[in-house]
């Protein structure tokens, strides 16, 4: 393989890898906002004023339970929709 072509091939893979890392960062920031926002947005009032969903206090239900389900779903969507299959070493042809 001539060197220029090799460089281009790896550049393409790095562009993909960089883009996917940005997805990771965006997701982790969104995760934090959801988790923190619901926990203290709904949980900071008096305990007597809490509302309950399926027996759990609403803050906990949204922040922790729905939060976990939502993040799993987002990971699924991001991986299926936006992540690209690439070969990990040069010798391999496209998978």
């Amino acid at each position: 393989m001539p060197p220029t072509q090799k460089l281009q091939a790896s550049d393409r893979r790095y562009t993909i890898a960089n883009r996917e890392a940005l997805f990771g960062i965006s997701l982790v920031v969104f995760h934090f906002l959801w988790w923190f926002g619901f926990a203290y947005g709904l949980g900071s009032k008096e305990v007597d004023e809490y509302t309950y969903i399926l027996g759990f206090p609403a803050w906990f239900f949204y922040s922790c339970i729905i939060g976990f389900i939502l993040i799993s779903l987002l990971v699924f969507i991001i991986v299926k929709k936006f992540f690209v299959n690439i070969p990990l070493d040069e010798e391999e042809s496209d998978i």
């Binding site: 893979r13 993909i16 890898a17 990771g24």
Partner: peptide, 9 residues
């Protein structure tokens, strides 16, 4: 997601 592909390559 962060280390992911780049680290393996």
């Amino acid at each position: 997601m962060i280390l992911g592909k780049k680290f393996a390559i």
